[in-house]
Amino acid sequence: MTRLASFLIIGLLIFGCGTLSAAETNLLNVSYDPTRELYQDFNEAFTKHWQAKTGQEFSIRQSHGGSGKQARSVIDGIEADVVTLALAYDIDAISQRGLIAKDWQTRLPDNSAPYTSTIVFLVRKGNPKGIKDWDDLIKPDIKVETPNPKTSGGARWNYLAAWGYALRQPGGNETSARDFVAALYRNVPVLDSGARGSTITFVQRGIGDVLVSWENEAFLALNELGPDKLDIVAPSVSIVAEPSVAVVDSVVDRRGTRAVAEAYLQYLYSPEGQEIAAKHYYRPRLPEVKANYADRFPAIALFTVDEVFGGWAKAQITHFAEGGVFDSIYAGPQ
């Protein structure tokens, strides 16, 4: 048994070394689904910036997928120099395994979230069902598209936004919020595993009257899939979605890429980086860039996870963990 195992390892060692040799002059950014277009542009800009500054030749590789799945890849050993994920909880999960320092969220400004987004509605052109706010989503004749919060980071923001809205209604409390969210999920005919899958089900398959979505995804879908087919509706209240970024300490220290990895994330906060983020419909942090794009982003009363839910760790355990509120919504009789 041990001999077999050592045989296997030696064989694979020989095999593995070959694939690794060329990997020193690049950076791997492990990110979530909706940021593909953003980071394609941003990587190009940063590569130029870095080469002008240091003269170093290097390239940036990208990996995209569901936020939780990507976090798991990092935990399982993918050589990510930086992670740019959908929510702080996923980076916390990596940090718990000791790959990222515990204080990661304070190492960069704005909770390590260089840009933000929020949750809005995408409806059919002309808004035939007259959907204006969260209340309309629980009406019996409305079909709502949203992904599964168990597998999609974006879907968790959707869920928390709905919960926060219900809580802030007159007389709102935990029970009424739970009932509201349960009613909303009763209107969901398909639970896709990711935000992109949900968008495709809504737009291409014609399922549902309203898609609950990231603001940036809603704009992208509108532009890519049909300005003539879709409209965006901004609810009265929503959540500040803060996609977080962090340097993966254990990887950059092993590979000696800390300087460039840190510069990469810092550059997201620069006017150039903020401009690119805004161009891709992420809400920028920098006031002067914000001002340039003011007409692009509708004014919505926004609340944060910390204000309403006491932080991601708590929200995760209460709502999305095994046996949490989300499970209980589906565990009851249908």
Binding site: A5, F15, G16, T19, S73, G77, E79, R97
Partner: peptide, 24 residues
Amino acid sequence: LFGMQGWFGPFLIEHGVQIIFAVP
């Protein structure tokens, strides 16, 4: 087996060998 949380993963990472997330 080969992930960082797996049986051989920590050993392999230490020696700079990537099995999963690579061709092998």
